[in-house]
Each structure stands twice: as structure tokens, then as C-alpha cells.
Simulated scan of single mutants.
Amino acid sequence: MVAECVVRRLTAREEYAVLGSLVVMMTVSAAFILTVFPALYDAFWGSACTAADTWLVCSGFLQRGFTAGILIGITAPVVGAYLVNRQMALIGEALAHTAFGGVAIGLFVGAAAPRFDYPLAFALVVATIAALAMQYVAVRTDGYADIPIAIMLTGGFALGIAVISYGVTFHATVESYLFGDILFVPFENVQLMVALTLVVVGTIALTHKQLLFITFDREAARLARINVAFYDTLLIVLTALVVVAAMQILGAILVAGMLVIPVAAAMLLTDSFDRGLLLSVLLGQAAVFGGIFLSYSWDIATGAMIILVAIALYVLALLLSALLPGR
């Protein structure tokens, strides 16, 4: 009994340490994006524009789009690697639709009170609440069943449509969040995405060992006194952050693709989780850059083109895996 109490105290201390580190990372990230990042951003793109001297690099909206895309290409596969290996891919889709409901609320509030016109902030709050609610349902029902995910997916989207249809007209803005629009990314949202990326990557780096343990052997993790519910909640909240960050480039309808497709392609090419994690990020970057370039070459929606390039990379990985020995 004494030993069990000691173990529980150590486990609780570990969780408090993780939460404390998360608060520190959020504080440092906020300070970084407000003070250091604007100067770094201007210096980097100024140098790139001088070196390349092309509108693809010198256009302000493309600079913001490329920066946002690069961040998405990092965070989405990193979080998606755990989701895919735990067969939780649909959770990303459910949170994306719920976040759209938050965007609709934010647009509605912003139309009534312009000083509160921060739809992504509302999306972040709503998606985080939805993530916690989904985790609560999962604990109560002992698993991420299809029914609560379907309810969350359709309910979030229904909420967004209900708010939009209430009487406020902002069709172009709504479409940009539904389908993604690289032209619609203001610098303030790029700053938010940088902060979310720092928090997500930093948290994953801090808790990688525990997340890996519960991903592949949950029962052994419980026997090792790892608080599985705590790390499940942490992962699903991180997923909500990634979904909100990616909405403006990919749109609520397509955002789950970047959580799943690069990871699925990487899993075809390697059996190692760590190598697959790195490879999925590289594939994510290839999909982002390829999608942006092709969308402007062919005049096709950027979010859709990114996902189509990701699918093409998956098909290529599928063909290559057939040639690899032992695959």
C-alpha cells in the first residue's frame, strides 16, 4: 500500500511537471512571437526575396502562406503519427468540423463587436473544449467509439451552419475556412501558428516516451503506472491545436488529410516509428510546397492541391513499398 501511494505521488508529480512545462512553453512562445519573430520573419523573407527575385518569394501573401504551410507540414504529421498508429484518424476530422463551428461563432461575434473579431481564437477555444469532451466520453465508454466521434463531427458542423444562417453575411470568409485560402492568412494568424507549433512540438518532445508507450502497449503502460487518460487527453488537445492552426490553409473539410496521409505514406516505407515520424514530416513538407506551386501554376485551390499532392506521394510510397524487401 505504501509503495502504491509513493508510485501515485511520483506519477502525479510527473503530470504536474508536464503541465508546468506546458505553461512555460506557452509563455515563452507568446514572448517569442511578439518580440523576436517579426524581425526574424522580415529578415528571412527579405533575404530570400533578394536572392530569388521572383514574385513567388517576394509576394507578401505568399510569404505568409509558405510560412503557414511549412508549420502545418511539421505539426500535422508529428501529431498524426500517434493518431494513425492508434487508429484515431477520424478524431482529427471531428475536431476540424467542431473548430469550424468555433470559427462561425467568432465571425458572428466579430460582426457584432469588431474588437473581438478573432475567429481562430474562438475556434481554438471550441476545439479544445470539444477535445476534452471527446476524451471524457472515451473514458466513460472505454474507447473512442464511432458514435461519439460521428456526433462530434456532425454536431460541430451543424453548429457552424446554424450560426452562419442566423443572419450575418460573410460568405467569402466562411468559404476560406471551409476550403482553405492561402490569400487569407494575415500576419497575426501566422504568429498564432508559430506559437501553436512551438507548443505542440515542444510538448511532443517532452512526452514522446509516454505517448509512444501508450500508443503501442496501453496495458503495459498502465502496469508501469503511466496515467494513460492524462496522456490521451494531452494528445487529443494537441490535435485540436494542430487542426485550428491548419484550417486557414487547408480548410475544415481537408485538414484531417495532413494528419493522416503523410503518416500513412511513411508507414509504408519504414517499420520504425521514429524514422516514420521524420519521414512523414518530410513528406508533409513536399506536399505543402508541391501543392502551393501547382495551385498557382494551374489556378487550383491551394488546400485541395496540397491534399492531392499528399495522396500522390502516398500512391508513390505504395508502389515503392511493393519493391522493398520484406514489405
Results as ranks from 00 to 15, higher is better:
V7I: 14
G102P: 03
T215W: 07
S59T: 15
I161L: 11
Q210M: 08
Y136Q: 05
A252I: 13
Y118P: 01
E188W: 05
T98W: 03
L56S: 08
I261P: 02
R8W: 14
D274V: 15
V243S: 04
L318K: 14
L283D: 05
V57P: 04
M25R: 15
E14I: 12
V255I: 13
D274S: 15
A304E: 03
Y16T: 11
I236Y: 00
F273E: 07
I147C: 00
Y41P: 02
C5I: 15
V78L: 14
F184Y: 12
S280I: 12
T197I: 12
G60W: 13
P148N: 00
A111H: 10
S272R: 14
A256S: 12
F66D: 00
S21C: 13
Y314D: 04
R140C: 01
A76K: 10
A287F: 08
I147H: 04
R222Q: 07
Y16C: 05
L62C: 05
C5D: 15
V242T: 09
F100P: 01
Q248V: 10
L268F: 08
L323W: 14
T75Q: 11
V244F: 00
F100S: 01
Q210P: 06
A317Y: 12
T302E: 07
A94D: 02
L40H: 11
M134R: 03
F100L: 09
D217V: 09
V288S: 00
I311M: 13
G156H: 06
L192K: 03
A131F: 02
G20Q: 10
T154A: 11
M305R: 04
G143H: 01
T207Y: 08
S280Q: 09
Q285S: 01
V315C: 12
T203K: 11
A317C: 10
F37R: 12
T173H: 07
F157T: 08
R115P: 00
L71T: 09
G46Q: 12
V263A: 08
A130D: 00
A312W: 12
A89E: 13
V79D: 02
V125H: 02
L320F: 13
D181T: 14
V18A: 08
E188A: 06
S280T: 13
V174G: 00
I105L: 10
A221N: 07
Q63A: 06
A138F: 00
V201N: 09
G110Y: 01
V24D: 08
V288I: 15
V18Y: 05
V242L: 07
L320S: 09
L234A: 03
I164Q: 11
V281R: 11
V190M: 01
D42V: 13
F184P: 01
A286K: 11
F273L: 14
T169H: 11
T128Q: 04
I72H: 00
S297K: 13
S165Q: 15
I253D: 02
E15V: 14
Q285D: 06
A39S: 15
V7M: 13
I105G: 00
L62E: 03
T11C: 10
V57H: 04
V255H: 02
G102K: 04
G69Y: 02
T302A: 08
L19H: 09
T67L: 03
L294K: 06
I72L: 10
M267D: 10
Y41Q: 06
F216D: 06
V103T: 09
L241Y: 08
A130H: 01
F157Q: 05
F44A: 13
I74Q: 09
